[in-house]
């Protein structure tokens, strides 16, 4: 092989590699579209049969009669998610501020790995904890003060388990957001006589509002899609919960619980795929919005 040929061969390899890699990159971009389309095609049969709105607003879930009302499951998901956010957000704000503003580096070095571990614990283990600890605690200790009877398998149990699951996600975003507030702003506030807490309250929190919003939206979408842990502690009764001690049946749990039977009834699999599609679309939008906000923040302070 002459030198020129060899060079041509090297360039050819370079171009070939570039095209393959470009193809893979485009494929990864299209993946979201492919997933959406795939789920849509599977849920098309039921969408032809019933209107989307009537299914979302109907409460009757009787697959044997061909009635697929998603309303109780959507309410179940909402209850669990809202409870989780209400518990997790104050915890994370307080702890996040503490870790990034007050805590001694030694404490940070101690706490950070533990938050990492919390993030790494599998959902099913959270579920085991929920069954062993949270459910009996609610059933025996809390619920008797408020309602006549609750087995403990409730939207509250789901909310508590979920809250702890989303804590690492929110804290890691919050500490990054707080760290991105320029030091000059803090110094300016402190130099005019504000206390550290006043600086946090009036400068840092105010500057971080978009970031906190993005963190909450991300956490909501995480809570929305969590399946196994919630499935294990929520009770899974298809009803609209009226109190935190009622059982609920969130959408992901519905999909996971019925996969075995779904091939036996007409439209059943289609209904479950529609549930997956609804989850997918909502979470896709939520995620995209919050990621775009976070990228903007990162870019603003990177300069």
């Amino acid at each position: 092989m002459s030198l020129a040929d060899h060079t041509r061969y090297r360039i050819f390899k370079d171009i070939l590699a570039r095209n393959i890699m470009f193809g893979l990159t485009v494929f990864s971009l299209l993946l979201a579209v492919i997933i959406g389309l795939g789920l849509y095609f599977k849920s098309a049969p039921i969408l032809n049969e019933h209107s989307l709105w009537s299914m979302l607003s109907s409460s009757s879930w009787r697959p044997f009669k061909g009635e697929f009302g998603f309303y109780p499951f959507i309410m179940g998901t909402l209850w669990v998610t809202i409870i989780a956010i209400v518990i997790a957000l104050p915890l994370c704000l307080l702890s996040g501020i503490y870790l990034s503003e007050y805590a001694h580096p030694f404490i940070k070095r101690l706490v950070d790995p533990m938050i990492d571990i919390l993030a790494g614990i599998p959902p099913v283990v959270y579920g085991v904890w929920g069954v062993l600890v949270v459910v009996p605690f609610i059933g025996d200790k809390i619920a008797p003060h408020f309602v006549e009877y609750s087995a403990g398998y409730s939207v509250l149990a789901g909310g508590i388990v979920l809250a702890i699951m989303i804590v690492p996600l929110i804290i890691s975003i919050l500490t990054e957001i707080f760290a991105s507030v320029p030091k000059e702003l803090r110094d300016a506030s402190l130099s005019v006589g504000a206390t550290k807490w006043q600086t946090i309250k009036f400068v840092i929190l105010r500057k971080s509002t978009p970031g906190i919003f993005a963190a909450v939206v991300l956490a909501i979408s995480r809570a929305f899609g969590e399946t196994i842990a919630v499935l294990m502690v929520c009770g899974n009764i298809s009803q609209v919960p009226h109190s935190v001690f009622d059982s609920g049946y969130p959408l992901p749990a519905l999909i996971a619980n019925n996969y075995g039977e779904m091939m036996s009834l007409p439209l059943y699999d289609s209904a479950l795929m529609l549930a997956a599609l609804i989850l997918f679309v909502i979470i896709l939008i939520f995620n995209a919005v919050s990621r775009i906000i976070l990228v903007r923040i990162e870019r603003r302070f990177a300069l």
Partner: peptide
């Protein structure tokens, strides 16, 4: 293209595993 790829993998990271399971099943 690089930034949109990063954004899209961030977004895909947030998609719950039950959706991947359901999609895998349809596939």
């Amino acid at each position: 293209l690089a930034n949109i790829t990063r954004l899209s993998s961030d977004v895909l990271f947030g998609i719950p595993s039950i959706v991947y399971g359901a999609f895998g099943f349809t596939l």
